[in-house]
């Protein structure tokens, strides 16, 4: 069941007197939380999602601006980006819900979804819990409402316009920017590049220590743009514990494992059926085709480079079958 685009705003349905959290309605969806779980309801169904996972997914979805394609909070509930509008769906990519006719999808203007998700996150996240940090590096989201967080919910997503470190572009992380090297990379030595520009060419040559920049990230599973040529985008990210969403691709993307290892579970994008498992170690390169969902698991914090093609309209070419869902024939 699909509802037409609705420019509705999120509404509070009242506050739980005991726990202190508000319940919300956004279009046909209702959202409430208790001490341990988020509860999502739609006209013909409900879903329960562990609260840490729900909040980690919710805040990243805002920060990513809904990313490329589908963000599954779990196997049933999630969002799809149409780059100007966003679907919120429940069961739309699950055979059981589809067969029973209990699936539901609604399309909203992107800014309305950002506002709605931000409203829920600010009400449901208390001081001391940071869903962008690794589980070992933050407090708990469990229990009743405590003092509200005062700092920004979303950070670390600022994209470089051409390359990190160029004049006028995004500054790489450093002690001066308030980003110490993470505990998991304390064994590495980071040598900065030497840049020697002749007179008249100052600012035209540029080099950074990309590994140092990644090692200083205080967020996980949060790719941010390091360099761009044309529509080729290098995103870098530090990964620890598990990707708190399942990402459904609307185009091919490529992973280059820079350090340590990540285990990926691969599913069919439309049905969720398993397709396989990939273990990537340092130096491994692997495509993520346009017809899959993937979820990563990093036993130790690792460095990952994601190569994206940001060409506008690419999602529609894949969706209409005008491009094969995989990147190469050989």
């Amino acid at each position: 069941m699909t509802a037409a685009a609705v420019p509705s705003d999120i509404k509070s349905l009242g506050k739980d007197a005991q726990l202190g959290y508000s319940e919300f309605q956004f279009g046909g969806f209702k959202f409430r939380r208790d001490e341990y779980f988020a509860h999502v309801a739609w006209p013909k169904g409900t879903r329960i999602i562990e609260i840490d996972r729900f909040l980690r997914a919710l805040v990243r979805d805002i920060g990513w601006q809904f990313f490329y394609g589908w963000i599954f909070f779990d196997d049933v509930f999630g969002t799809q980006n149409h780059y100007g509008s966003v679907d919120i769906f429940a069961g739309s990519y699950d055979g059981g819900y589809k067969a029973a006719g209990t699936d539901f999808m609604e399309t909203f203007p992107t800014d309305k979804v950002v506002t709605a998700f931000d409203t829920i996150a600010r009400d449901w996240i208390s001081e001391g819990y940071d869903p962008l940090r690794a589980p070992q590096e933050t407090g708990t989201p469990l229990g009743s409402k405590r003092a509200p967080r005062k700092d920004a919910l979303v950070r670390g997503f600022t994209p470089a316009k051409r390359m990190l470190g160029l004049p006028g572009d995004v500054t790489p992380r450093s002690d001066e920017t308030g980003h110490p090297v993470n505990r998991a990379f304390a064994d590495l030595k980071f040598e900065q590049p030497e840049v020697h520009a002749e007179k008249g060419f100052e600012g035209q040559l540029n080099a950074i220590n990309l590994f140092d920049h990644i090692a200083r990230s205080d967020v996980t599973w949060n790719p941010s743009v390091a360099s761009i040529t044309g529509a080729s985008i290098f995103c870098v990210t530090s990964e620890e514990h598990m990707l708190p969403v399942i990402h459904g691709n609307d185009r091919n993307e490529w992973f280059i494992q820079l350090s340590d290892e990540i285990h990926w579970q691969i599913q069919d994008k439309n049905t969720g059926n398993p397709r396989g498992r990939i273990v990537m170690k340092a130096g491994d390169v692997c495509a993520m085709p346009a017809d899959i969902r993937h979820q990563g698991f990093a036993p130790k914090r690792s460095m990952l480079l994601v190569a994206e093609n940001g060409t506008p309209g690419l999602d529609e070419l894949y969706a209409k079958g005008k491009l094969p869902p995989y990147p190469l024939d050989f």
Binding site: Q257, P274, I278, K281, C286, A287, K300, P327, F330
Partner: peptide
């Protein structure tokens, strides 16, 4: 922690365990 990096002389390739697709679609290399 001990961070694993790769090099020309020392690298370990991961694995591709595909059960319901063509391995070539993942173009896995090191």
């Amino acid at each position: 922690y001990h961070t694993q990096l790769g090099s020309l002389k020392n690298y370990t390739k991961g694995s591709l365990d595909i059960v319901n697709d063509d391995k070539k679609h993942y173009a896995f290399s090191n």
